[in-house]
Amino acid sequence: MRVQPVAEQVWMFVGDDHESVATAFIDGDDALLVDALGRTDDALRLRQLLCEERGKTVRAIVATHCMSDHMAALPLFPQALRIAQRHYRHTFLHQNRREDAYYLEPQLVFDHAMSLRWGAHELRLLHNPGKTLDHISVDVPSADLVCAGDNIVGRIVYLSRADPMALRAAILRLREFGRGSVIGGHIGCFPAVVLDQALHYLDRLRDTVVGIRASATSRQADARIAAIPIEACLAPQVQALAFERDWHARNLEAIVAQSVFALDAAMALREARA
Rank of each mutant, 00 (worst) to 15 (best):
R45G: 06
Q48V: 12
L49I: 14
L49S: 13
C51E: 06
E52W: 04
E53P: 01
G55Q: 03
K56V: 06
V58T: 15
V58K: 09
I61H: 03
I61F: 04
V62P: 04
T64Y: 02
M67V: 15
S68Y: 13
H70E: 03
A73D: 05
A73T: 04
L74N: 09
L74F: 15
F77H: 04
F77A: 07
P78G: 08
A80P: 10
L81Q: 13
R82Y: 12
R86Y: 14
R86S: 15
H90D: 15
T91W: 03
L93R: 13
L93F: 09
H94A: 14
Q95P: 09
N96I: 12
R97Y: 15
R97P: 01
R98G: 07
R98V: 14
E99F: 10
A101I: 06
A101H: 02
Y102A: 09
Y103G: 02
L104C: 12
L104E: 15
L104M: 13
L104I: 11
E105F: 06
P106R: 04
Q107E: 15
V109L: 11
H112E: 14
S115K: 12
W118Q: 12
W118H: 15
G119V: 08
A120C: 12
A120E: 14
A120W: 10
H121W: 07
H121P: 10
L126T: 05
H127L: 10
N128P: 13
T132H: 13
D134E: 07
D134A: 14
I136F: 11
I136D: 08
V138Y: 03
D139W: 04
V140S: 00
C147G: 00
N151T: 02
N151K: 05
V153I: 07
V157I: 13
V157N: 05
Y158T: 04
S160K: 03
S160C: 00
A162L: 00
D163R: 08
M165I: 07
A166R: 12
A166V: 08
L167M: 06
